[in-house]
Amino acid sequence: ACFIRYYSSELSSLDQMNLIKELREATSAPIKEVKSALVSSNWDIEAAQKDLRKRGVVLASKKSSRTAGEGLLALAQNQEKAVVVELNCETDFVARNEIFQYLALSLAKSALLLEGTKNDNALTHFMAEHLEDLRLSFNHPKLTGEKTLQNAIAEVAAMMGENVKLGGGFAISAPSHGVLSTYLHASPQPGLGRIAGVVSLDVEDSSAPLDSVRTVGSQLAMHVVAAKPLFLAKEDVNSDALGNEEEILRSQAESTGKSETAIDKIVEGRLRKYFEEVVLLEQKFVVDDTVNVKTVLSNLSKTVESNVKISNFVRVQVGQGLKKV
């Protein structure tokens, strides 16, 4: 930005207000900090901006102990993989800010270029500390030049006046033949959202057409966000979770005072209901609840004349921590 330098002896109250407004627009720093920097630099706006940037890291570090449970997920995708990263802040107000959103999108696009596993459908985690030294090139009026992600986060935290931190991320590789579908819920602009769903669909025949697969894939990514499955198939439900559920259901059934045979049938029925709630293939399809997801895949396989299966899926939500994926 190009500034005209003023000095205190020349300034009227109106000139001072204009300088405060100009520096505030250029830096997005809190008004109190803007005025303080201008006063301490004798109303030299370039010196004040430099002072704000110097203090930005200090201001950000003071805020780093505060809880940052809001924020956004940023998604970037190419033919090889999809990447989702989480950028956190303290309030939804900051999550709606264009600079915060610009930083999140820039981070996702840069993470997409990182080298990772080439295995089909593989899920790779990015811990926050592995991304902090990543160098990004910024081209925003209030965030420019090349800098590390850690420094960029510190600058944005100073502008926003609250704690901003990286929540980690993951990459999921595309299948050798098939579709990697994504969906973002509560999306303020393309590539950003509060909940993300990613579904990888494998198509057995490499010559099979993919148009129908893409359509169903998009619907399934939306389904994953809405239905919150925990497992892909019944076989994936771990024995501890299943044992605990069966124990609870049996205890509830026994309280009815019915015969052992009747209790077994009650438990069997309730377990079936449990699978329909937590297992993706057993869930009723959100687009058409007369069929389950397993049937949707069976019908799709007939349409493209090749076996289609879900090889991987991920659902993540802001504040839940990507390390749990």
Score class of each variant (00 low, 15 high):
K109E: 15
V94T: 11
F285C: 08
L143N: 06
V224W: 01
R5L: 14
A186S: 15
R135H: 14
K324D: 15
T256F: 09
Q283R: 02
A37G: 05
N238P: 13
A158P: 00
M127H: 09
A157V: 08
K234E: 15
V203P: 09
A26V: 02
N88T: 05
H223I: 09
N307P: 04
D288N: 13
S251T: 12
Q283H: 06
A241Y: 03
K32I: 15
L230D: 13
V225K: 02
E246V: 15
G71C: 04
S64W: 01
D120S: 14
L180P: 07
A208Y: 03
S311N: 11
E98L: 11
V224H: 03
E204Y: 03
S41E: 15
F93S: 03
Q16D: 02
N88S: 05
V203E: 08
I263P: 07
L180M: 04
S311Q: 10
V164G: 07
S212A: 14
A221N: 05
A26N: 09
L249R: 01
D288G: 07
E90Q: 15
A226C: 09
E129P: 06
F100C: 11
F3W: 11
K165W: 01
T261Q: 12
M127F: 07
E98R: 08
Y274R: 09
S207K: 14
E90W: 03
T256K: 08
